[in-house]
Computed example of a mutant assay.
Amino acid sequence: MPKSLGKDSTCSIARSLEVVGDRWTLLILREALIAGSTRFQEFREALGVAPNLLTQRLAFLVEQGLMTRRTYQEAGTRARDEYVLTEAGRSLNVVIAALSDWGRTRRPLAEGTSPAFAVGESGAPVRLAFVTGDGEQVAAEQLVARRTPDRELAGR
């Protein structure tokens, strides 16, 4: 599945897309993050994806360290695997939130649904924002992005 993307495959965006750039992969992650899905059948029912494709994508997510495979067994059934997000997988919640926000505002649909993110313990609603080191919120329209070596960004 992974392949080198473009001329500058050292770019962090290209490196990320090598892992999560497939629509089924992102939808599997969405189901795991938002619906709490862990079982093959849960993903199948929610996504309607072909079983062979789902098997492939789940194995890839495990291989890439975004999910871990764990065996479970319900009484009277054979042992099966479930797929649980790792810390790396859970950290993609900001990507899923950004895609959701963009889709809701730039591709609105009257009957659409979107995830609402909140602080786990308190339930306080949260939203995505660009914030300076001083805590000042900056509108996306004001941003400028420049290629910068990763080592220069460490600790920012």
Rank of each mutant, 00 (worst) to 15 (best):
C11R: 12
S12G: 09
I13Q: 07
I13W: 08
I13Y: 08
A14Q: 09
A14V: 04
A14Y: 04
R15H: 06
S16V: 07
S16Q: 09
S16M: 12
L17A: 10
E18A: 14
V19W: 02
V20D: 06
V20M: 09
V20G: 04
D22N: 15
D22F: 04
D22W: 04
W24Q: 14
W24V: 13
W24A: 15
T25G: 14
L27G: 12
L29G: 03
R30E: 15
E31P: 08
E31T: 12
E31D: 15
E31Y: 03
A32D: 01
A32L: 11
L33H: 08
I34A: 04
A35L: 15
T38W: 02
R39Q: 14
R39I: 03
R39L: 08
R39Y: 11
F40P: 00
F43R: 00
E45P: 01
E45I: 11
E45T: 14
L47A: 09
L47D: 07
L47T: 05
G48S: 13
G48A: 12
V49H: 03
V49F: 07
V49S: 07
V49G: 05
A50R: 14
P51F: 08
P51M: 06
P51H: 12
L54E: 01
L54Q: 09
L54F: 04
L54G: 07
L54P: 02
T55G: 13
Q56L: 14
Q56C: 11
R57S: 02
A59R: 11
A59K: 14
F60Y: 14
F60V: 14
F60D: 01
F60H: 05
L61S: 01
L61H: 00
L61I: 10
V62T: 13
V62H: 03
E63M: 07
Q64H: 10
Q64W: 05
G65V: 09
G65A: 11
L66D: 00
L66F: 15
L66G: 00
M67L: 15
T68K: 12
R70M: 10
R70I: 09
R70L: 09
T71R: 10
Q73T: 10
Q73G: 09
Q73P: 00
A75H: 08
G76W: 03
T77H: 09
T77R: 08
T77S: 11
T77F: 10
R78P: 00
R78K: 06
A79Q: 12
A79M: 07
A79D: 02
A79P: 01
R80N: 05
D81C: 06
D81S: 13
Y83D: 00
Y83V: 02
Y83I: 02
V84D: 01
V84T: 03
V84G: 01
V84N: 01
L85T: 01
E87S: 07
E87I: 04
A88R: 06
G89M: 06
G89V: 01
G89N: 02
N93S: 10
V94K: 11
V94N: 06
